[in-house]
Design a protein around this nucleic acid. Sequence first.
RNA 1: GGAGGGAUGCGAGAGUGGCCGAAUCGGACGGUCUCGAAAACCGUUGUGGGUGUACGCCCACCGUGGGUUCAAAUCCCACUCCCUCCGCCA
Length: 433
Amino acid sequence: MIDVRRLRVELDATKAALARKGVPGAEVNRAATLDVEQRRLAREAEDLRGRVKVLSKQVGDAMREGEPAKAEALREESRLLGNELATVEREGSKTERQLRDALLRLPNLPAPDAPDGTSEADNVVVRTVGYDPARYGPHQRVPHWDIGTDLHILDMERGAKISGSMFSLFTGEGATLARALCQLALDRNSDAFTEVRPPSLVRTPAMEAVGQLPKFADDAYHLERDDLWAIPTGEVPLTFMRANEILTAEELPMRLMAYTPCFRRESGAAGRDTRGLLRVHEFDKVELVAICTRTDAPALHQELLERATGAIAALGLPYRVVDISTGDLGQSHARQFDIEVYAPGCDMWLEASSVSWFSDYQARRAAIRYRPRTGGQTQVCDTLNGSALAVPRVWAALVETYRQADGSVEIPDCLQPYFRGLTSITGSVGRVG
RNA sequence: GGAGGGAUGCGAGAGUGGCCGAAUCGGACGGUCUCGAAAACCGUUGUGGGUGUACGCCCACCGUGGGUUCAAAUCCCACUCCCUCCGCCA
């Protein structure tokens, strides 16, 4: 969430910044009003509590001095104040809850240099790398769902039999390819990132901290019986790992990576771009997370972007980098670059990675602070994350791009080490159907 | 799933209704001493919030949330987590 103090010292600037994300000024005003009211009630409660404390002490003294009548009188006085205090406290905590809820729902301020806009249409393509439509032959203009069926490496029908539509089932070399992509992503980033294998089911506070809740509850799978959420991304456990901790300056910047499954209900996306692997409920992803100081954040954002594009480039896939406009920025995001990979079979640019800077929005919710090297007050950290590689769409673009005239799929050099000597996918290995 | 024990400051650990934001030991930091170090001694050492120009002052926090009471780390209830044993089980 944003720093409440902003609402006190620079309300207009905050409103202007949030207006770029389409937040009505009234919503910001409401939070500001609640803040004023909350502090007023807190001050009143403090005052009353202080008086009760003094009186209570005097009751004890009177008892010890053997003056029961005096004690009783003081007790009565304190009781009355106590009732008053209870009323003020009730009101205070109600206001506090409302304020907290209002703050949780206010999105992060966009970075000043994020492009203005009202929707996806205003996103800016920053650069396109390796794309040449003339270079593709007809054998590459086959969508991956057909290739998958031909080579027996992707079986959406049986995936649906097991779990319903939009659940993928990789078989044989298809499964190997999915795993190899993750292995490659982990290996490429192991120079600077600590590998983590976190839980895939998390508690509500973890989802709240990264901004998934309360606003986007419908997008996540929830296990009611145990009140656990299936993570939509490794970002959730990786960011929450250090929640409620004060880090030392020496630990920063902290670089973490994890290979996790990701679960998404895609509640609002029914029927839209759902063929094959374009949109699935469960997929594997290698996520990179950085926790750092404000000063280090911009450089880390660039670093994450380079690492994410680096993996796509290493696979020999054309891609473009999109600067997300304020109209399309996520709730927690200050700045976001998407990497879209070109899939010649579908003839589509597929969003394959999202590299984001959250300023201190997530860290404030998660209470991740650090103590500056110079000592003094703790500071809220900045958080960033990006997909080092998300399997399905890269898998799709890859088999479409590397499809040969004979129908086989060549395995790019950098993946071959994970293929037990295979150099191309012919569908002959581990045939299931 | 059953039985029992526990959760206190950076760590260990005392505290069972008022004198407790909290003994004691340890750690860390600063200082005295020393050529320097060790030892010894002295001091400092949690988080969040409010308020004032300011040395500051005030409030909250002893796992979380409720309750009892004039007064709660301390009593009661619920929950969460950790540990031990048994059962089950990759």
